[in-house]
Design a protein around this nucleic acid. Sequence first.
RNA 1: CGGGAUGUGGCGCAGCUUGGUAGCGCACUUCGUUCGGGACGAAGGGGCCGCAGGUUCGAAUCCUGUCAUCCCGACCA
Length: 609
Amino acid sequence: MRVSRLMLVTLRDDPAEAEIPSHKLLLRGGYMRRVASGVYAYLPLLWRVLSKISAIVRQEMNATGALETLLPALQPASLWERSGRWQGYTAGEGIMFHLVDRQERSLGLGPTHEEVITALAADLLRSYRQLPVSLYQIQTKFRDEIRPRFGLMRGREFIMKDAYSFHADEADLRLTYARMDQAYRRIFSRCGLRTVAVEADSGAIGGSASQEFMVTAAAGEDLILSSADGRYAANQERACSLPEPAVPLVCPSPEAVELHTPGQHSIEDLCAAHGLEPSQTVKVLLLLARCAIGQARVVLVSLRGDQQLNPTKLANAVSAAVGEGAGALLELEPISAEQIRSEGLPEWPLGCLGPHLGDELLSGARSWHPAFLRLADATAAELDVFVCGANRPDTHLVGARWEALGGARPSVADLRSAQPGERCLQDPTQRLEASRGIEVGHIFQLGRKYSQALEATFTNEQGLDEPLWMGCYGIGVSRLAQAAVEQHHDQQGICWPVAIAPFEVIVVVASAQDPVQVALGETLHDKLEQAGLEVLLDDRSERAGVKFKDADLIGIPWRVVVGRGAASAQVELVERASGAKSEMAADAVVAQLQQTILAARGGLALGSS
RNA sequence: CGGGAUGUGGCGCAGCUUGGUAGCGCACUUCGUUCGGGACGAAGGGGCCGCAGGUUCGAAUCCUGUCAUCCCGACCA
């Protein structure tokens, strides 16, 4: 391929819209253009990268025995109503693009395909004799993200590989899950990525066990907490740790004593004013939970004063507490004084709340459920004696005890965010370290959530019908491409790993005016292609410096410079990533590159997709 | 949706405070000189100043509204 025919337009300046290196470089290198917020045109160079990643994904998925398929992006609402996810995915902060067709039927653009695949499974899978079976597809997904970000990192339209497995029992699901785990590790390693597998929250997809694969990079959106020995790693949303022990509260009197605390509405103010430690206090947070079905509920969360609330864990706890009858949890937001007023309720002593806040405060609420949903983190529930709000303005209680406070006791759950520096649960001698990661893959054991909802059953060996066991497995293909750039770049530009580079070699003719150089460049290009390599020939009549800069920017792993030595058939070979240069005979360079590159491809032969 | 910022040739920006001929660098075209790390000179083409109202003799500039994009939070591959 000739650069002059490549429609290559590189930019000298960073586009103002890009913030992180990979986004800037993909725009500057002429790999993509933004069409709308979170929507990108993949230009020819990027499409080659995406195709190579897809080819690796295909090989590894096929090796697990999964079958490639292609499901519709346009999906009927009725299917999503059957799984109970239509509301959650379209109302409130739902992310599904949806529309109404000329027959007034509601449709959505697939953000994921559990519904479609499960309906197909219900239709096609009848007997345990057909199981297990796995299907996958590589396809464009649509998600109306609340905030698209960083180019391909969080797009509203993006390429994803999603796979679904079906099993007769849970043990078999675990086997495939483990096989997918191994396949994923091979995929990322073949793409040249350093990844870490972390325990993850299952989120809206649901199900039990799940694991994310993170490309470690400073620009990552997720915080990973891991032990130094690498045996424990989890997304902060999910991570657990041993909290520091609370500082004991010395309290001579068995009765709680009132403390005048004017204007001390935060834990910091309270502790500073009275010489207390945050771990001696219990703070109370009020949130409003809106579910698809039923009244909004006020959630009263008790946390030890030094702990941070983990919104993901709280959302899971609330969902579990309200039960399936309430449908999907649509929204969980802190309550404001205005909201309390607009419910027609008298003012609450915000800032001085205690865990024993009575349900009578909710009586007469216009739309809210008349009782608090009471939850407490274990660190708070374990305190024998503590400081908390007195539920009266400017007043706290010192020496409060759960049994003495009276009122309804909260359900105890893990609601706190693990923090870097805390001790690991499985090995208290180690402490959690923080790093950032880009989530490029996520695997789930879904269990029977979707098969039950969509009545996807099979007949087991005993002749009885039962719901299928399911797993699902995603890779963000377009995100992976950008994550690779985030991990492999320098001041000059991208340094693609050979396995996913758009081209493997670029032959740069230093002077397009010199017929000897031009001829040698052409010859080399042809020979390298005949050797089975993917070769770019920079035949433009630019000055050498411009071509070198562009070659570095677009990040082709190997550069062959045909220049001054052309008359004596000498060329220069430069490795992009290391910058290592060597002079050699033009004849020798073909064999050398063939050997090096074929090895670096990791078994992916040309055109093997 | 809340908070912050920005919209001026393809890209990066100045001009706006104090209203009066729309500018600079890069890119593009032509010519000449140059030619191994984003050359130099000359000539040239390209802009509804995001959009819509308003104020004014006159608006890129002032006012109102609106749209879009980016950043910080909730969502996720």
